[in-house]
Structure formats: C-alpha cells, structure tokens
Write a protein that binds this DNA or RNA. Structure first.
Lengths: 179, 179
DNA sequence: AGTGGCATGTAAAGAGTTACATGATTTG
DNA sequence: CAAATCATGTAACTCTTTACATGCCACT
C-alpha cells in the first residue's frame, strides 16, 4: 500500500491546528483499530508537506533553545485531501499474530491458545472501554452533526470490540469445558 | 512486526505437503481477513527454511526443464512452530484506507463516502460468501474435531463480515435519506 | 492458437519500525 | 526532585510489495 501519512495528517488538521506529537497521539488513541503511524513517518512527512505548501507552521517558542511547531492546513492542503477522498481505496493490509495462531493451532497447542485468548480478550475489553469513553466525550455537544462521521466509525469500532470480546470469552469457555 | 512468514508456512505444512504456489493461494483465500504474504516473501523463505532443516522438498519433475517443489515439514520444523505458538503475540498492524476515509470525512465528502461505502459493502459481501463456502466445505466431514480451530476463526470471520455488511448498509441508508 | 491458471524465482524500490539523541514542562 | 509526559528529529535496519522473467499444463 502506498503511504498515506500525508492524508491522515491533512485530515486531522482540517479541524484544528496540531503538533506532530499530538497527531501521533490522536492516531494511537482514536484510530488504532484501523490505522497506525510512527514518529519516523510523521516528522519527516510534516517537513515535506510544508515544503509542498500543504501546511503552515506556527512556531511556538518555548523557553530555552527548543521549538515546537503547531501546523495549520493550507488551501492547497485541503485540495489535496479532497482529491484523495475521491480516489479509489487500496486493499487493506492486516496482520494479526493472535488470529494467525488461532487459525493454525491444533490440540497440541490448546494451552497456548487459551493463554492467547485470555490476553486477546483483555486487550479488546480495554480498547472497548477507551472507545466508549471517547464516544461519551461527544455526548452533550450541540454540534454533534459535525462529528457524524467519526461517531459512525466509533460505533463500528465498538461493535467490533463487542464481537471480539464475546467470541473470545465463549471460545475460552468451550476449550476449558472440553477437558 | 517481525516477519512471521516461516510460521505461516510451517503451520500450513503441518497438515499436508504443499507447493509455494499453493501456500500463497491458501493464505489469500482463507486467511486474507487477518494475514497476507507475497511471493517475494514465500519463495526465498522456503529456501531459507530448507537450509535451516525445517522443511524437506520433494521434487516433482514435470516434463521439460521446469521443476516443482512440494514441501514437507520436518521434526525440527514442528518444534520451531510449537515454540512460536508459546511466545507472546506482537501488536497487530492494520491499515484500512476505507476506514481512514470514513473517519476523516466531513459533509463536503459525503458523495465520496457513499461511493466508498457501497464498494466496501460489496467487497465484504463477497468475502462473506467465500467464507461461508469454505465453512460449508467442512460440513459432513467426520473429523470435524481436527478442524475445530480453523472453524472457530472462520466463525469469527463470518460474524465480522456480517457486522461490516450490516453497518455499511445502514450507514448508506442514513446518508441517502438525510438529503 | 490463445487464455487462464499453475509454478518458481529475483532485484529494486518502497514502506515502516526501532533505537537513539536531545531537551522542556508538568505533576506528584 | 524524580518521573511522566510533551516534543522533535534522524539513521539504520527490517519488512513488504511490485515488476519482471520464465515456462508448463489444461481447456476451448
């Protein structure tokens, strides 16, 4: 898959100015079930995008010799984002080591499978809780309409987490009662 | 994520001897919702694994100067696979351009979102059908027990596809009735 | 005779992670 | 005052895809 780093950045900056660090954080906390980016992708890309005229950087001078950059999207940036929105989507890339193990297991691996299922269940419950918290943070806002699209994705994320939690806890029971 | 190519191969060869081409096909058809490998990973890895004593190659001489290799797992290969089964799982890596677009969209992208949702829905219905066919291919076999683990993953895959289909068709209706 | 699927492989390009380096600010 | 978090960046490495090259086999 071609790299999409710039579109994620552009998409987030449409709503509010952010630093590279905040962008990374936002992706990790809110989008982790379908996307990830590392600092090694984000920081060089921010500079390239500024060079291409897609972003403006507001330099927040902190005390000392360190600087902090808060980026704003330009008109050209909005254009590039909207062009990407119109393009066809490439095929997903997914790699889940847990699913791989669940699929390839046989009876000689039962104990390992149970262990991985328990870990899987716990991780998905945590993720579910964090999505539900994020969802609640929208409750009560009057401009719900502006967040319609995020809310819909969040709804899907929550339903997926429920599915994973239900499936794994049933599966654990089955394996444990089978002895 | 460290590359897992050898474990996928080992896992598949535990059940039956296969060619590199068949391995690739099997991953594409049955495991695509949580894993993918390319020929560029599989063929060099098969040679490395043979070198490491994890596989034996049976050379099917075809007429002409072309050969075809059917690989068998060795005892050492089974060991390496079982050791991997016991290890902790690394974090998933997922990238879905469609989800990214759904998440980052706003009203100015509504038409694009509907288009991508329709494509998304269609692709997921096709995938659902292929999983259901794969599932049916197990029905009637007496040794269902041997396929317990695959069946459980297939069940999850099918439920996930149902979720994606339901969610996207509801979403399309919502967006279309909102005008 | 042509198409599509079976079959193996490599080289180069591209994508992505990780470890490291640096230092400020906030919070307990 | 220590620890956590905010903050930016790069270089090296690893992983992965893609395009290309080759040729067989079955079917129409």
């Amino acid at each position: 898959m071609k790299k999409k780093t710039r579109y994620v950045i552009l998409g987030l900056l449409r709503d509010e100015a952010m630093t590279g660090y905040e962008i990374k954080n936002c992706i990790d906390r809110r989008m982790s079930f379908f996307w990830q980016e590392s600092y090694g992708q984000i920081y060089p890309e921010l500079n390239a995008m500024q060079n291409d005229g897609l972003l403006d950087a507001r330099e927040d001078q902190q005390s000392g010799n360190r600087v902090k950059f808060r980026y704003t999207i330009t008109e050209k940036g909005r254009q590039v984002f909207n062009d990407w929105m119109t393009e066809e989507c490439e095929k997903d890339t997914v790699r889940s080591e847990a699913f791989l193990k669940f699929f390839l297991a046989n009876d000689s691996n039962q104990a390992d499978v149970i262990h991985h299922l328990e870990k899987f269940h716990q991780q998905n419950r945590e993720r579910l809780e964090s999505y539900e918290m994020f969802m609640k943070s929208f409750q009560g806002l009057e401009d719900m309409h502006n967040h319609k699209y995020i809310l819909k994705m969040l709804e899907l994320g929550i339903r997926q987490q429920h599915l994973y939690c239900d499936w794994s806890s049933d599966y654990i029971d089955e394996l444990k009662n089978n002895d």
